Simulated scan of single mutants.
Amino acid sequence: MHDINTFLPFWEGFSVVTIKPDGDALQIDLTPHTTRLPSCGGCQKPCSTTHEYCERVVRDLPILGRAVRLSVLLRRVGCRDCGKRMENVS
Rank of each mutant, 00 (worst) to 15 (best):
Y53I: 07
V77W: 02
K20G: 01
R85D: 09
G83N: 04
S48V: 11
V57F: 14
T31A: 12
T49A: 07
E87L: 06
T6M: 03
N88K: 05
W11G: 07
C47G: 01
V16T: 14
P21A: 11
G42W: 09
C40M: 05
V89I: 14
E12I: 10
V89D: 06
P38F: 04
P46T: 14
C82Q: 06
L70C: 14
D3P: 00
E55H: 01
S90C: 06
S39A: 05
A25E: 14
T50I: 15
I28F: 02
C82S: 06
P21V: 03
W11H: 08
R80G: 06
H33G: 00
F10H: 02
L73H: 01
I19M: 15
D24Y: 04
A25M: 05
L37A: 12
V17F: 01
Q27T: 13
H33T: 01
P32N: 00
A25Y: 03
V89N: 05
D29V: 13
D24A: 15
P62S: 11
M1H: 13
T6R: 08
R69N: 12
R85I: 11
K84N: 03
L30Q: 03
R85Q: 15
S71R: 14
G41Y: 05
S90N: 06
D3I: 02
L73Y: 00
G65A: 13
I63N: 07
V58L: 09
D3K: 06
G65T: 12
C47F: 01
L37E: 12
R85S: 13
T18S: 15
R59M: 12
G23D: 12
V17G: 00
C82L: 06
E87K: 01
L8P: 09
L70K: 14
Q44A: 11
R85Y: 06
S71H: 05
T34H: 09
L74G: 00
D60K: 08
V16S: 08
K45M: 07
A25R: 09
P38N: 08
T31E: 11
R69C: 10
